[in-house]
Every structure is written in C-alpha cells, then in structure tokens.
Simulated scan of single mutants.
Amino acid sequence: MTKKISKETAEHYMWGGSCDGWHLVKGQELSVIHERMPAQTAEVRHYHERARQFFFVLSGQAVLEVEGVRHALGSQEGVEVPPGAAHQMKNEGEEAVEFLVISQPTTRGDRINEES
C-alpha cells in the first residue's frame, strides 16, 4: 500500500544515547532512515556483510569515515558504502546534522561492530 510519510509520522527511535532515527521505509529489501546526530556525536565503527548503503546529508556537516578514508560531507552531499566496508558517521561540529541512510537490503541482523 502506497502512503505519504514524513519525519513527523514515521516510526521514531533513539540510538547512541542522544541520536534520533525515523524509519521512512522499513522493508526487507530496502530501508530509508532519516537520522539526526547532535554536535560532537559519533556512531560505533561497523560494517555490513550484505547491505550496501548510501549516506546523504540533508543539513549540517558530517564526516563519514570509510575504510580509513575521511569524507567531509556538507548539505546535499553523500557517499556510498559497499558491503564489507568498515565505516563510521561522525558529527565533529557544533551544530546538529541530519541525513538519510539508504540501505539495500535492510541492515537488520547484518551489522558487525568493530572492536574499539
């Protein structure tokens, strides 16, 4: 069934203690999540065995580290992350960053955190 979705109507969850996520598309073959990271936050470095992801910044500034390469991302910029590539999204700035994470297939049950 096709229906309109927005951040205000999407399923919301918290992660990393202070970060927000909204499931815009939550399927087995495709996941689209709108995420918000406050200033000076980062996710745990990890990889996915099956899922290919695309991170796209909507507002703010972020750093997406992929296999040791830092990608500084501004508004309307993105990076694709292939399966098996260790990555970590970071907000090193003083303002919140909002971005989309598009995954195919879903990352549920496919995330492997790296040791610190």
Rank of each mutant, 00 (worst) to 15 (best):
E49L: 12
S31R: 10
A10S: 12
Q88N: 01
S6P: 06
G21R: 06
N113S: 06
H23D: 04
P83F: 13
H23W: 07
Y47E: 14
A72W: 07
I102Q: 01
S75K: 07
V79N: 00
P38V: 03
A42S: 14
K7G: 05
H48Y: 12
K4S: 06
A39Y: 09
G16L: 11
E114R: 06
T41H: 15
Y13F: 15
V97D: 02
E29A: 11
H87C: 02
S75E: 12
T107N: 09
M89V: 05
T106S: 15
C19P: 01
F56G: 00
I5K: 04
A96R: 03
G21H: 11
H46A: 14
G84F: 03
D20I: 00
Q40Y: 14
M37L: 06
V32N: 00
L58W: 00
E35A: 10
E77P: 02
E114C: 09
H48D: 05
L64F: 03
H71R: 01
G68A: 13
H87V: 01
L100K: 04
L24K: 08
E43P: 11
G78Q: 09
V63F: 03
E65V: 10
I112H: 04
I33F: 01
V101P: 03
A39L: 13
F54M: 11
Q40K: 15
Y47M: 14
Q28E: 11
E114Y: 00
N91Q: 03
